[in-house]
Design a protein around this nucleic acid. Structure first.
Length: 223
DNA sequence: GCGACAG
DNA sequence: ATCTTGTCGC
């Protein structure tokens, strides 16, 4: 039961985004408690970008305990094009999730959710394929405007044409904020609560940071 | 035409 | 994303 065949060209990929965006559901995340299984996922690439290394880390206690991990090494078959990142990363991420022994309650991606030109970023695409609540947590901006964010912990809306699509969230005072936006089965408020609630005295929420680190370890150990 | 542009 | 060492600052 696949969501769609995989595109080859940028034009096909964009058409798919337009056709899938209406399936994205923006609603509150399920209740977030100490027992919630929060997964973080990320990828690393070879210098020549021939292969990519995907890792998903499932945690509980807001990232303080690792429950399961899974990874996948795949050839890269789609170029990096701003706005089409998911077509480059979702295949490897799905392969990694397929090796998981548990189903996470929510997934956090290193990329945008609906803070995207066609409101269909990586977190939306992955969330739809997995049919699991997903949130985008990117390290930089793809689009949108926002007011200055005070140096202390907090958040401010990220707007596109005046409408809020996500939030800049500063987890640590004085540290650069992350760009948070709903991916699927999530809304702005609960997505921000998730990112601020996660453990980790670093810029990235612990689940995503753990996946990011594991991704480079996998690359270093891969044959 | 000139920038901007998740990873 | 990846290439890369030391170094300025708290």
């Amino acid at each position: 039961m696949s969501l769609h065949p995989w595109p080859t060209t940028a034009a096909e990929a964009e058409a798919l985004q337009h056709g899938l965006v209406d399936r994205v559901r923006l609603e509150p995340l399920p209740p977030l408690t100490d027992a919630t299984l929060i997964a973080g996922c990320d990828l690393a690439y070879d210098k020549d970008e021939a292969r990519c290394y995907a890792v998903v880390v499932v945690t509980r206690a807001w990232g303080r305990e690792v429950v399961a991990t899974a990874e996948a090494v795949r050839p890269v078959e789609f170029p990096y094009v701003p706005g089409l990142l998911s077509f480059r990363e979702v295949p490897a991420l799905l392969a990694a999730f397929a090796g998981l022994s548990v189903t996470p309650d929510v997934v956090m991606c290193d990329g945008q959710g609906v803070a995207h030109p066609r409101r269909f970023g990586l977190a939306c695409h992955l969330g739809l394929w997995l049919d699991v609540p997903a949130v985008g947590c990117a390290k930089s901006r793809l689009l949108g405007e926002h007011d200055a964010l005070p140096a202390q912990v907090g958040s401010t809306p990220l707007r596109v044409d005046g409408a809020p699509v996500g939030d800049l969230v500063r987890r640590i005072a004085g540290v650069k904020p992350v760009y948070v936006s709903p991916g699927h089965r999530a809304d702005r408020a609960s997505a921000v609560a998730l990112v601020l609630g996660c453990a980790g005295a670093y810029r990235l929420p612990e689940p995503v940071r753990l996946a990011d680190i594991a991704t480079r370890v996998l690359r270093a150990e891969a044959p």
